Simulated scan of single mutants.
Amino acid sequence: MTIREASAEWQGTLKEGGGRLRLGSGVFEGAYSFPSRFENGLGTNPEELIGAAHAGCFSMALTFVLGQEGHVARTIRTVAKVHLGATAAGPTITRIELETEAEIPGLQPAEFQRMAETAKTTCLVSRALAGVTTITLKAELAATTATDNENQEV
């Protein structure tokens, strides 16, 4: 199987120090710090990167599920909101909200909801994050014109 890599370097104390996060592919490198993680400071943080990974994985999983049933999306846009909260164990990712909107000609909303739920449970990142107490999903099918449905091949 494929191995993906990312790295982090930190210097200084927890509250006054700072670090850099790097993706192994080299396409992203960013600063992170206590303020960027636990407050609203500049920079990125691990939770934001988890959100990006989850949104990307879910969108691809939904594409796969749709394809298995003969549908092709024009667009799938997903946002993952990663909640960092306090528990007895300390700071914890307590919830992830997936919000997706897709434009898929010829697909009915009930079918879309079923497929989106399947994608949520089969997404590799969803499975990896199974320790997160709650992962929610809000899926919205964008309206298509009547001609979209008429022009779809059967």
Rank of each mutant, 00 (worst) to 15 (best):
G51W: 12
S36M: 04
R37M: 13
S36P: 05
N40A: 15
T78G: 09
G24P: 04
T63N: 12
T63A: 15
G56V: 03
G56M: 04
E29K: 00
F34S: 09
M60K: 07
F58D: 05
A55D: 03
F28D: 09
G51E: 05
A53W: 00
I93K: 02
R77H: 12
S36H: 09
A73H: 12
C57R: 02
G41H: 11
M60T: 12
T75I: 01
A52M: 13
G17Y: 08
A52Q: 13
G85S: 11
G24D: 00
G90W: 05
V65Y: 05
R37N: 12
A53N: 01
G56F: 02
G90V: 00
V27S: 03
P91F: 14
Y32E: 01
V79L: 09
S33M: 10
S36D: 04
Q68L: 13
A86F: 10
T92Q: 14
A53R: 00
A89Y: 01
R77V: 12
V65M: 09
T78D: 06
T44G: 01
Q68F: 02
E16D: 15
A73F: 09
I76G: 11
T63S: 14
S33V: 10
V27C: 01
I50M: 09
I93C: 07
P91M: 07
F28P: 03
F64G: 00
G43P: 08
C57A: 06
A73Y: 09
L84P: 11
L66A: 10
N40H: 14
T94I: 07
L42Q: 14
T94P: 04
E47I: 02
E48K: 03
V27R: 06
T94W: 01
N40D: 15
A61L: 04
A61C: 06
A88W: 13
A88D: 15
P91I: 02
T87N: 04
F38H: 06
G18E: 15
L49Q: 03
R77M: 06
G70K: 06
S25W: 02
G26F: 02
K81T: 14
Y32G: 00
F64T: 08
V82Y: 07
A89G: 13
H54R: 05
K15S: 13
G85M: 06
S25R: 03
E39H: 06
I50L: 14
T75W: 07
A55C: 03
V65F: 10
P46R: 00
A80N: 07
E16Q: 14
E29V: 00
G17A: 08
V27D: 07
L21C: 00
S59L: 01
G67Q: 11
S33Y: 12
L42H: 12
R74L: 12
F38P: 05
